[in-house]
């Protein structure tokens, strides 16, 4: 069985659990608990370990999707999940600018632990208060001249939209893999001397 592991991350309420529930073909393994912190203003339950979903597309091939908790107190779960991820998508709610700095910190955390390719998924772009894509990238610290990740607008409740987001992520992983062969592959082809 060959498996590709993708991680869905982002601040509380960005739509991570919903995203995985929408795209998964199996009933999602969730670890939701009733929220008692400030998360409760946003939604009634919150992920405390991870969400797990799966897409099997061949007899021996499957895509595994892991959703992280949003709150920083679960950063050990971020750590566990990101290390095994082949690629990840960071969901950011476009209409909640107060979370941009937090998202920036989350990205720094992930980047420090993993060189896996990342794309940004912007949710809630249809709301009046939503910031434009360009401005969100800027607020996340992607200034002119810095390398920007692919960005996709996504509706976590919509099956086609989440599928497109995953496709974008896999395609991006593919181009990165093409551009720079993985070090492990490179080492394997070296003759022993």
């Amino acid at each position: 069985m060959e498996i590709m592991r993708l991680v869905v991350t982002g601040p509380v309420g960005a739509g991570k659990s919903t995203f995985i529930r929408t795209i998964s073909e199996i009933e999602v393994v969730d670890t939701d608990r009733r929220a008692t912190d400030e998360t409760a203003d946003l939604k009634s339950s919150t992920t405390v370990a991870f969400d797990f979903g799966r897409l099997q597309f061949g007899p021996d091939t499957a895509l595994h999707l892991y959703g992280t908790p949003g709150q920083a107190r679960f950063d050990f779960m971020w750590d566990i999940l990101i290390r095994k991820a082949h690629a990840y998508i960071m969901l950011v709610a476009a209409h909640r600018p107060h979370e941009f700095r937090y998202s920036r910190r989350m990205l720094a955390f992930m980047r420090q632990r993993s060189d896996a390719p990342v794309i940004l998924g912007l949710t809630h772009m249809d709301l009046d208060k939503a910031w434009s894509q360009k401005d969100i990238l800027l607020a996340l610290g992607y200034v002119k001249g810095s390398q920007q990740p692919p960005v996709i607008v996504v509706n976590p409740t919509d099956q086609q939209s989440t599928t497109r987001a995953i496709l974008t992520l896999v395609q991006y992983y593919f181009t990165i893999l093409q551009a720079a062969p993985h070090p492990q592959v490179y080492e394997a082809s070296q003759p022993c001397s």
Partner: peptide
């Protein structure tokens, strides 16, 4: 081993990715 980054992550094969992308394109 928390210190080693990506120690457990092997790259996904080309054929796997091609199949997956084809599958997702059909779905989307």
């Amino acid at each position: 081993s928390p210190e080693t980054v990506n120690a457990t992550r092997e790259p996904v094969s080309q054929s796997f990715l091609n199949n997956l992308m084809g599958f997702l394109k059909n779905q989307a």
